[in-house]
Amino acid sequence: MKVLGSLAIALLTAMVFASSLSAVAPGDQGPNFKFDKSWNIEEGVTELDQYRGKIVMIEAWATW
């Protein structure tokens, strides 16, 4: 019961935390970020801002 209780609290905390984060939504300016490493990307392109002038689709993915 104790385990369940702390699990519920952790879950609740996570939910409150997640909803307080400000996600990038349509209408917002997309924040820049630098690439630590890249594949299939034009030489000299090292950050997102260099895609200005194009439509860019940022996809967050993982192998798992």
Binding site: A18, P31, I55, M57, A60, W61
Partner: peptide, 21 residues
């Protein structure tokens, strides 16, 4: 770029403005 699930995507227009999420 906060997300509650993966995969997730954002599309930015030529000026860097988000037009899809």
């Amino acid at each position: 770029y906060q997300t509650r699930g993966i995969p997730h995507c954002w599309v930015l227009d030529a000026d860097g403005k988000c037009i899809f999420e």
